Deep mutational scan, measured.
Amino acid sequence: RRRVRAILPYTKVPDTDEISFLKGDMFIVHNELEDGWMWVTNLRTDEQGLIVEDLVEEVG
């Protein structure tokens, strides 16, 4: 499975499927959606939700 790491922190918009995260958080990518969004699991918090790919980098 594809893994990505947050390069910046992010605070979710209330009442959306987004998740908040810290710089350095690792995610497993489940689905890549339109307009650069990804459905992921945050490995630190075990939370699932949407993040935008501009805020993460690939992990080898």
Rank of each mutant, 00 (worst) to 15 (best):
Q48Y: 10
R5C: 10
R44S: 07
W37V: 07
E58R: 09
V40S: 03
D46H: 15
R1D: 11
M26G: 04
E53F: 14
R1S: 14
E18Q: 14
N31M: 14
A6I: 02
E58Q: 09
G49Q: 00
V40R: 00
V59A: 12
I28E: 14
D54C: 10
E57S: 07
D46L: 15
V13G: 09
G49W: 01
V29W: 02
M38D: 01
L43T: 11
D35R: 11
L8G: 12
R5P: 01
V52Y: 15
E32P: 07
R3Q: 10
L22V: 11
R3M: 15
R3F: 14
V56I: 11
L22D: 10
P9R: 08
F21V: 04
R2D: 04
G36D: 04
M38S: 04
I28P: 00
T41I: 08
T45E: 02
H30E: 12
I28A: 08
E32W: 07
F21D: 00
G36C: 06
F27M: 11
G24P: 00
F21T: 02
I28L: 11
T11F: 08
T16E: 02
D15G: 13
D17L: 14
R1N: 15
G60P: 12
R5Y: 07
R44V: 04
M38I: 10
T11M: 11
F27K: 00
V59W: 12
V59P: 06
V13E: 11
Q48E: 10
D35Q: 13
G49C: 02
L33T: 10
E57W: 05
E47V: 06
R1H: 15
V29N: 00
L22G: 06
R44G: 04
E18T: 07
D54W: 15
L50Q: 08
V29H: 02
D35T: 10
E53L: 11
D15L: 10
V56Q: 02
I7P: 02
E32Y: 09
D25C: 03
F27V: 01
E32A: 11
V52Q: 15
V4R: 05
P14N: 10
G36A: 05
E32N: 12
V13C: 13
I51H: 00
H30T: 06
H30R: 06
L22F: 10
W37F: 09
E34D: 13
E58A: 10
N31L: 15
T41R: 09
I51G: 01
G36L: 04
E53N: 14
N31A: 12
A6C: 04
N31I: 14
I28R: 05
R1P: 14
L22M: 12
L33S: 09
K12Q: 07
W39F: 10
K12T: 04
L8K: 13
F21P: 00
G24Y: 07
S20L: 01
T11H: 09
E53S: 15
I7A: 05
L22Q: 13
L55D: 05
A6L: 01
I51Q: 01
W39T: 04
D25Q: 01
L55N: 10
I7T: 09
N31R: 10
G49I: 01
L8N: 10
K23D: 06
V59N: 06
I19V: 08
E47G: 04
L50R: 15
E32R: 12
M26Q: 09
K23F: 08
G24L: 04
V52H: 14
N42M: 10
Q48W: 09
E53D: 12
V29Q: 02
H30A: 05
V59F: 11
D35M: 12
G24T: 03
W37E: 04
N42W: 02
G36R: 09
T16S: 12
V59K: 04
A6H: 00
I51V: 12
V56R: 01
K23Y: 08
Q48I: 13
P9N: 13
V4A: 05
L50H: 05
L22A: 10
R5G: 02
S20D: 08
E32M: 13
Y10A: 03
E58K: 08
L43R: 04
H30M: 12
M26H: 11
P9D: 13
V52A: 15
R3E: 08
L43P: 03
L43W: 05
Y10P: 03
V40H: 00
I7D: 02
N31F: 15
Q48D: 09
I51R: 01
L33G: 10
D54E: 12
L8E: 10
E57V: 11
T45Y: 01
E34H: 15
G60Q: 14
R5I: 11
A6T: 02
K23V: 12
H30C: 12
E18S: 05
I28T: 09
E34R: 14
G60W: 14
R2E: 05
I7K: 11
K12H: 07
I28V: 12
P14I: 09
T45F: 01
S20N: 07
E32T: 13
D46Y: 15
D17V: 09
V29K: 02
R5L: 08
V56A: 04
E47W: 03
P14T: 08
V29I: 09
E34A: 15
R2Q: 06
E34S: 14
E53T: 14
V52M: 13
W39E: 05
T16F: 02
E18R: 05
V56H: 01
S20W: 02
R3Y: 15
L8A: 13
N31K: 15
L22K: 11
H30K: 05
G49V: 01
G49H: 01
H30V: 08
T11L: 10
W39K: 04
R2W: 06
E18D: 03
E53A: 14
T45W: 02
E34T: 13
W39G: 01
E18L: 05
E58D: 13
G24C: 09
M38T: 03
N31D: 14
V4Y: 07
E47F: 04
E57C: 08
V29P: 01
D46Q: 15
T16P: 01
M38A: 04
V52G: 12
Q48F: 11
V52K: 15
L22E: 12
E58F: 08
L8P: 01
W37G: 06
E47K: 07
N31P: 01
A6W: 01
L55A: 11
L22T: 08
V56T: 11
N42G: 02
M38Q: 03
R3V: 14
W39Y: 09
R5Q: 09
P9H: 11
K12A: 14
M26L: 14
M26T: 10
I7N: 05
K12Y: 03
L33K: 09
F27A: 01
L8F: 13
